[in-house]
Design a protein around this nucleic acid. Structure first.
Lengths: 251, 251
DNA sequence: GTCCATCCGTGCGATATGTCAACAAATGCA
DNA sequence: TGCATTTGTTGACATATCGCACGGATGGAC
């Protein structure tokens, strides 16, 4: 069977090294990477030199930076997903019709990952794009995807709390989120009113495949102008329409 | 100094395995991966099992698929680039003003990599997004970026030819492209008239930093309706304006 | 059923790699 | 400047891993 001896430590360590690079740490020295990743300095050094040698990183003698070559790895993944290509035309049309940005995402651990998006004029502070991540607990699509999991699994992902408070309205108690998930499950859609960012609302529904399994979440993002309840109706109708049309197509 | 003994073969092999996954090969068996990557089956197996063990791949006992976790690797890279965040607001405004999609890309080998984009209604057959790649030789931004290189380097990237013919108008002779690069260099912008796809035109200019070095390319994509020469003027003016404003900001 | 082809899992020797410790160079601080 | 600390690099040894070759499993053709 699959034994522990079939695991290549070097590969795992190298991937961990890549993941240590973030927006707040774009350029790192060997020791920095070693400290963040928990690897030995010598090991981190070999990983970084290997990455540089194969064009995944640049090295100026002191600091390492990632190169666009690394993007290939992520793109390889997106390209293997049929979902983005299938939903993109629907997103384009939906987004055009309602005049708002719409997106499709899936769950990866405690985060939602955008896999397709049709953007209208931006209301959010950061630019979202395929590959972007947001926490699941405070986003409409995240609530949809968490609600699709067994309760125990959702609770495990939410953790012991408290969850980070992103705005005054953010639900920070995992049990409060769990209660909201039950509502979402019952009503078949999720509303978020400025929980992830001030001034930003969102409406989401699940995307089901032909067998009725939830494979992704679909949303529309809105600027918070009038109370969300009052204006959600038309958006929910548009989302439901796309949901129904995609249900026959998705596998 | 940096010796060959500081290179970790296992890491390089694992990354190569990830890159074997493509749109036309979303699910692969061990033997398939081994054949495509040139690795031994046993080695490919260990790589794949390692990826699966760490959540980068799924394994159903027969086929492996990549998980969204892999997207983290690419996102780590995009997040470390200051460029996308700086140019995004400019792209949004530019795109809104001219009513067409606009993008910023950089060069990676023989391909351009989109790092930021503001999309208007889609005219291209495939959805472009940050991380997407197109060949440099037949795109407006690619011509800009190739023109910024030393001639010998550009020629090396183009290779011996002939280059793939994507439409009837595609330049397939590397020397013809080199001649075009000289023109691009002289006039400071590149025009593409349906060389990458029927019905699609594009206008691009370089983005310079404060020191005058070319750090990226900026373009506007257009549907081919009237002859490109006749309508390029206003777009070039808009591009030039953004170029000038960014020049003071980019490093 | 038999044969053939393909694929997967495993054992083994040679080699590459990780860990640890020590050292040298660079850096920060008073 | 002088001292203390951090950082990059190297060497040695134990161990993990590679690539090869073999055996078993699977599936299709006839």
């Amino acid at each position: 069977m699959i034994g522990e001896r079939d695991i290549m430590g070097g590969l795992a360590k190298g991937l961990a090294v890549i993941e240590t690079f973030r927006a707040d740490r774009p350029r790192q020295s060997i020791s920095e990477v070693a400290a963040v990743s928990g690897l030995d300095r010598a090991t981190a050094r070999r990983c970084l030199l290997t990455l540089a040698h194969h064009g995944y990183a640049d090295y100026d003698g002191k600091f390492f930076t990632l190169t666009p070559r690394v993007l290939r790895l992520g793109t390889a993944c997106l390209a293997t997903m049929p979902l983005p290509q299938i939903v993109q035309p629907f997103l384009d049309e939906l987004s055009e019709r309602v005049g708002q940005s719409s997106s499709v995402s899936i769950l990866d651990g405690a985060e939602i990952v955008y896999v397709a998006r049709a953007a209208q004029k931006r209301v959010m502070s950061i630019a979202l794009m395929p590959g972007s991540r947001l926490p699941a607990y405070c986003t409409s699509m995240g609530r949809i995807l968490l609600a699709a999991l067994p309760e125990a699994e959702a609770r495990r992902i939410l953790g012991p709390g408290p969850l980070p408070r992103r705005t005054a309205r953010t639900l920070t108690d995992p049990e409060a989120v769990m209660a909201e998930l039950a509502r979402v499950r019952a009503q078949g859609h999720a509303l978020i009113d400025q929980e992830v960012e001030e001034g930003l609302c969102s409406v989401a529904v699940p995307l089901l495949n032909a067998r009725g399994r939830i494979v992704a979440a679909l949303n529309i993002g809105l600027a918070a102008t009038v109370p969300l309840d009052e204006m959600a109706g038309p958006y929910l109708a548009a989302l439901g329409e796309v949901q129904a049309r995609l249900r026959a197509i998705l596998t």
